[in-house]
Design a protein around this nucleic acid. Structure first.
Lengths: 204, 204
DNA sequence: CCTCATGTAAAACGATCGGTTTACCAAGCC
DNA sequence: GGCTTGGTAAACCGATCGTTTTACATGAGG
């Protein structure tokens, strides 16, 4: 049971994190384990036992870094960059391609589609954690704003309308992929995005 | 503290429940309470204590009707008709209006948007309950099939493509409404649906 | 040397989880 | 009356939840 974290190199357990050294950087390990487990298995079904175990951290250390599990959920969300969304930042692409890049299919790249961590957190907490709810709203609004900005850069006639429509479409691709456990909806979303973008460029 | 239902005999429900004899309707009450609590508060956060209490049913009676909570979740999903989807059945509307009717905004009509019960169940169980996962997939595929059929009736050039695109859009409207706790995305989805449908009718 | 910050391991807390059990009750039907 | 059927109320089970606590180890700085 004593994994002896002091000795580097030997790691018999499925360590998610390379221990920096004797034990410093507990907070990072906690956040990394939370990102893995909360996303893969869900927030409610991930107990503190498994979490601290995966982070190679004692419970005491955990509660010295975070006042509660809810606080960790907040921090977990705050540090999230949902897969695909960063495509909007690529300045090597035209605005149009940046928008379309959101819907690039990545079906088999990752192990399992589990949708947007923010949305999942909203569903799981069901409004019981106001701070989490607020964080989700903040992220979704910010993402929509970035979409609108990109739509404007792409020369859309009604950038706000197009941006919000693409936001709905993007959310739907992730959600339906989660429900179906299959990345195919991304292809349909991409086709729809092309249609919507084209329609937003040409005359009414 | 509740007015005990003295004469439940006139409940016009069909033979869905099929009481072997003289059933007092405990099963119906359980399913009704499950529909309320699972949807509003989530599946994982609704314990058997609160559930049986809300259904005015003893735990013993519950476990005489359902072998486990997981089985109740299955039955709960099986009996669900997500709000809005039944618009597809209205034969007083043209196929096009049936498709558009899905996105009719109903922002303030209900207390709280909580998205699609099937999708929520998929998120909450995170694949831990295979039967539930299968039920979600089944429903989503059936719904997409109905959309495709309606798109075909509407005269779409590529009914399968349009149907699946509208399915993604519909899922996104519900998911984003959940995350934002606001029904506005339905309006954007409706606009996008009009664009997609129109594009599917006119020439390429 | 001592202290202090940071860490670990492990037991224990009360609460609640899903699920089981005991004891009792009221009709329905022979 | 007996007997089954479908129901209620409440105690109880082991397990796990999130959280706290006790006891101990380590390394840097004075």
């Amino acid at each position: 049971m004593e994994s002896s974290p002091g000795s580097p190199g030997s790691s018999g357990s499925p360590d998610l994190v390379a221990p920096t050294r004797g034990g410093r950087g507990a907070r990072e390990r906690i956040l990394r384990a939370a990102a893995d487990l909360f996303y893969a298995d869900g927030i409610n079904t991930t107990g503190m036992e498994r979490l601290t175990e995966a982070a190679h951290v004692s419970k005491r250390t955990f509660y010295q870094h975070f006042p509660s599990k809810a606080a960790l959920v907040e921090a977990y969300l705050h540090g999230q960059r949902p897969s695909g969304e960063q495509t909007l930042d690529r300045d090597d692409l035209s605005p149009r391609d940046r928008l379309l890049g959101l819907f690039a299919e990545r079906a088999a790249t990752e192990g399992r589609f589990r949708g947007c961590p923010y949305h999942n957190a909203a569903v799981e907490t069901a409004g019981a954690l106001p701070e989490v709810q607020a964080e989700v709203v903040r992220h979704k609004q910010e993402f929509a704003a970035r979409l609108i900005e990109t739509a404007r850069a792409a020369g859309a006639r009604d950038p706000e309308g197009l941006g919000r429509q693409l936001a709905v479409l993007f959310e739907g691709a992730k959600a339906l992929s989660t429900s179906l456990n299959d990345g195919c909806p991304a292809d349909d979303a991409r086709q729809a995005a092309i249609t919507l973008i084209d329609a937003a460029m040409t005359g009414e």
